[in-house]
Design a protein around this nucleic acid. Sequence first.
DNA 1: ATTTAGCACTCTTCATCTCTGAGTGCTAAT
DNA 2: ATTAGCACTCAGAGATGAAGAGTGCTAAAT
Lengths: 346, 346
Amino acid sequence: MDSRKLKILSAVVDEYIRTGEPVSSKAISKLENINVSPATVRNDMALLEQLGYLEQPHTSAGRIPTFLGYRLYIDELINPPDLSDYEKQRLDSMLGGKDTPEELLIQNAVDALAEVTQCTAVVTNSVPKFSVISKVEVIPTGKRLYVILLITSNGSIKNKACRLEFDLDNEQLEFFRHYIEEHLNGISVEELSEEMLEKMVTAVSAYMVSLSPLVLGICELSEDLRQQELKVSGSEKLLSCDELDKMEVVKFIEHKNGLADLLEETFSGIQVKFGAENNNFVIGNSSLIVSKYRKGNKDVGSLGVIGPMRVNYKKIIPYIEYLTQKISYLMSDDEDIINKDTQADT
Amino acid sequence: MDSRKLKILSAVVDEYIRTGEPVSSKAISKLENINVSPATVRNDMALLEQLGYLEQPHTSAGRIPTFLGYRLYIDELINPPDLSDYEKQRLDSMLGGKDTPEELLIQNAVDALAEVTQCTAVVTNSVPKFSVISKVEVIPTGKRLYVILLITSNGSIKNKACRLEFDLDNEQLEFFRHYIEEHLNGISVEELSEEMLEKMVTAVSAYMVSLSPLVLGICELSEDLRQQELKVSGSEKLLSCDELDKMEVVKFIEHKNGLADLLEETFSGIQVKFGAENNNFVIGNSSLIVSKYRKGNKDVGSLGVIGPMRVNYKKIIPYIEYLTQKISYLMSDDEDIINKDTQADT
DNA sequence: ATTTAGCACTCTTCATCTCTGAGTGCTAAT
DNA sequence: ATTAGCACTCAGAGATGAAGAGTGCTAAAT
């Protein structure tokens, strides 16, 4: 496959993304960097069709890219330009500085991405899952009624009411608080497995049976924390794409089925997934462009854009790359940096 | 206006709701309870058109109801049948029993309504707004970092982290706790106005300036509680109505603009509002059927259905009536009942 | 061997036209 | 007051045809 054919394929995808109409040989040959006649382009296009990269909606129409065509375009041919300094500054100001709380940072990022791309943006946040339990409180609030408060090192706070079978006296409450503090402080949410909590249930029950609902409550709270959050911004944009099936889009907006998992299973670097290629998350002609961001040296979430197959990849990819880099930087704990420094010193 | 004409109007609306097509005089005269010829029906229909209850899409088409026609139909002519025992049982099992937590109850109700009507169902919940603050906790969780916990009598729990300028010593913390307990315990969320909190800010600041963020935190939490929740179930159903403008529906699904207010401003009993009649909440040909439910002797929320103008009112209204009654019953505190008993005794 | 001009061919799209059938309003008879 | 009968209207479905965009193929040019 010679380079002219690749150039033509690339041009067809570009044009199709720009106009949304099947692309004719004439239109391609008119382009600046193509210096051959329509007939030549036609010949090449016929070949690209044979190879499965292009297709014709009907005999006398221009070509549109196939899945394979998009794939090749994205993986090999695309060459997205860098962001201008102006755009970088704009994104920076939308994100906020180093002192922005994590959750707000993530929210800002997804909002900014939706704004600059004019597409639906999505983000997951597993930071709580990787953070450490810093405080567990048990507060009596009524007859046999207790509220459990779980606070993690990243500032997530969760609460839950529990009803016990008996009221606890001070001694019992103190015992439980002490026990919990001893066993949970400094444990990461991820480590806080069911087995571990089961052991705690038996241990605590040995002291007093009716304490077990409290442990179960903690279990549920940690479950909540472990469940990564999923945020979506600008979902109305999806609806205005005629390429996408309205019903499918609405179902997606309602339930976000499978999206969290799909975002999780990506590797590092920019990735593009097509709706029809996935089992769970299916919006017919959709395309998902994502990249992971990190905290310290752990992948803690994914940021991306959902649009029709013919979104402007060239424009979107640099935005996602810049934003994921930036939030990774902004989220890096000062401690991480200090640690690195100290390590370097020793 | 004689009773036959009303019968014909009613029949036209019924038929239009059933078929979605303009209704012809022939179709009406064929109906069981109409024993006159098409010509007679035509004469009556012409009159009903003059009076503004019916209209013709074009000269040689059947009639469809106007706004006025629907209004009359709903307010006077409709005679919804009772639910069967089977249906009541079905709803009961979907709702859950007397021990179901309020919030889940509301969620179940809106889901059940969406399920049985196959329409989009909505519900508001102002229970937290009318409940009483039963506990406020301030918990130190780190350097100058405190978590405020606000618990209300209905079991809502809200928390928020606050960063102060200085750390509090035990005495200061105790002072604040005591102050808060004295001034807020037993106050309803609704009463907890901004003025009141402002007074508290000044009072507390007199003792120690840096305490004010805590009061502000409480202020925000009560704001959260005051904001009635709005739940929507089955919003995809709206999308499949061709009668409704897709763009308008999508905007509604995204923002739910004005819906909460609209639901709030209803009176007791079943009410039907047409989309175009309202300023804020406008989905062109939509119809909103709602009724309030109560807790004790206070209206605390509205439950209803949104659909096209030609939804099956006869089927939907009994469902809403039954559900609002039932949740009102299920939410009535045992204390309320006991109170009534004691009052009866004295 | 590649590229290109030329041309016949295909297929969509749009406008125009006609025909059919459903439904009405009016008139005159019951 | 009701109804049968009839002329009239109008939307919708098909049919027809012209225009235009785009292709594939062939033969000539480079």
